[in-house]
Structure formats: C-alpha cells, structure tokens
Design a protein around this nucleic acid. Structure first.
Length: 281
DNA sequence: ATGGCGAGTGGTACTCGA
C-alpha cells in the first residue's frame, strides 16, 4: 500500500493536479488537508472517475479534511472526543468545533487526516487553542493505543509545528513566532512519548514540505518541514519506503505544501483487483 | 527554469494562512 498526506490548499482549485498525482504516483490512500469547502462543493466525481472513494469533513470555506482511497474505508470518524472548539461560544459557553480531523480504516490500518490549528501569534487565543488541540489529540491517542497496542495507526497531516531548528530555513526569522516555540514542540513530542514516531524522517532526513507563496520562498528554498506521518509502533514496522514530493511545488497552480508519501508492507484483504483498478474502462 | 501570494467570500475589501 502506498499512502500520502497533502495539504492541498483548496481541493476545488487543485482537483486536476491532485487526481493526476494520484494516478501518476500510484497512491492508494491520500489524506488531504485544507480542502476549503463544504460537502456539496467537493468534486467527488473527479475522484470516482479515477477510481477513488472520498470521505470528507468540511463546514465552511476554512480548514476541511478528507481521505481518498481506492480500497474500501470503514469506521469513518469526524473530530476526536477531546477536540476543543474555537471562537464565539454558544449559549452553553461551548466554542464551535472546526473541520480539522477525519479518520478511516483501510486494510486494517487506521489513518487520521489532521489539520492542526496555526496558532497565529504567541499571545493570540488561537495559540492556546492549538496547544489544547494537540494535547486533546494526544490524550485520545493514548486511549486508542491503550485499547489496541498493536493497532497500525498513523496521525498524518499538516502539524503546523517545526519540531527541530533545521525544519525552518532560518530559525532567527522565527524568533517570537509560532511553529517553533517550546510549548508547541513539547506538544508535538508528547506523541513520541506515546510511542509514535515520524516514520519519514529516518528515510528522508533532509527537506521541507512547505514554502510560502510570497517572497520567492520556493526558488530560494526557504521552506518549512511541518507535514508529518506519525506512526504507532505497529504502523512503523510496516513502512518500507518514504519520500517528500518536492516537484509538486513546481509548475502552474501548486499548493504551498507538497505530498509526503510512505510505502507500507500491507497484504491487502481485497485482492489483486484493487492493485491496478481498471480506471479507464 | 522553481520567479516576487493565493485561496475563500452576500466579494472589488476583507480574512486567513505559517
């Protein structure tokens, strides 16, 4: 099985690039973030035309996550139990939930497509929200793994955290900014304390996954490494290859993020017909 | 060439992003 995670920055603006990529790169499961649409706006037909089912979670023009798969998906879950909301509270004092998490199981592997809040500024309520969001996810992940220690689980997506100084082109540029602060890094590394690990970094030690559209960031290779596939021990043991598809930042109409890909040694329970679907008739 | 931001929206001015 080959899976990827990709912050697509609007699926409607990027649908041709995404479906072309799925076919060209032989991707079985794609976790997408920032789809930026509601369900009635999602281009499902473009995915079904090339042999993929899609499950999605989108409430408005912001955020939004989805999973496309050419193998059957089960146990689809939006949000997670400890996920906090953000913004104007309702009459009961509860802030509304945002569309930032969706999970599905494919061939016995549990995938989550996650769009961690940005944080905006260190003194902004969004920063507190980001930390509570990550801590809530860690709490629920601990519960999932306590119940199923052998579960192949991958928390994938745009983490909006640069765990190491080398994950930004110039750490001095980020002094006093989000993404590199000790509390964000602590919230990120808490997942390693639960036994999860970044399954890509050992195989791809160098490279960014995001370059801002502004200020020639890509031509100058001034980027950030903030998109990760964090795997449970059982998931990590399945990984047999990884890459960051930097070329997807090139050409006309790219996302500002690129796909992060892993190959998994999963024996499909669905048989050979799913290995090369007859997508062109 | 990888080239100076781009996506969304009761829009032509604003929010959001990292």
């Amino acid at each position: 099985m080959r899976m990827a995670t990709w912050n697509v920055n609007s699926i409607r603006a990027r649908v041709d690039r995404v479906t072309d990529y799925l076919i060209r790169e032989d991707i079985d499961v794609l976790c997408m973030q920032e789809i930026k649409c509601r369900e009635h706006q999602f281009p499902f037909d473009a995915f079904t035309a090339v042999g993929y089912e899609v499950v999605m979670h989108g409430l408005n023009q912001w955020n939004g996550v989805a999973i496309a798969s050419r193998l059957p998906m089960t146990d689809v879950e939006r949000d997670f139990p400890s996920m906090p909301g953000f913004g104007e509270p309702d009459a009961d004092g509860v802030s509304p939930l945002e569309a930032r998490a969706i999970g599905a199981t494919v061939d016995g592997v549990r995938f989550y497509s996650l769009y961690i809040p940005n944080g905006r500024e260190l003194d902004h309520p969004h920063y507190t929200y980001k930390l509570e969001w990550l801590r809530g996810l860690a709490r629920d992940t601990a519960g999932w793994l306590a119940g199923s220690p052998e579960l192949p689980l991958a928390l994938t997506g745009d983490w909006n955290v640069a765990p190491f100084d080398r994950d930004v082109w110039d750490v001095a540029e980020f002094a006093g900014s989000t993404h590199i602060s000790p509390l964000e890094r602590e919230a990120f590394f808490a997942f390693e304390a639960l036994g999860l690990r970044d399954v890509v970094r050992p195989l791809v030690p160098e490279g960014y996954t995001y370059w801002d559209y502004k200020q020639l960031r890509f031509p100058r290779n001034e980027g950030m490494r903030i998109d990760f596939i964090m795997g449970s021990p059982a998931f990590a043991s399945l990984v047999e290859g990884a890459r960051i598809d930097r070329d997807e930042r090139k050409g006309d109409g790219p996302s500002d993020h690129v796909p992060v890909v892993v190959d998994l040694a999963v024996d499909s329970e669905f048989g050979d017909e799913y290995d090369r679907p007859m997508i062109f008739g």
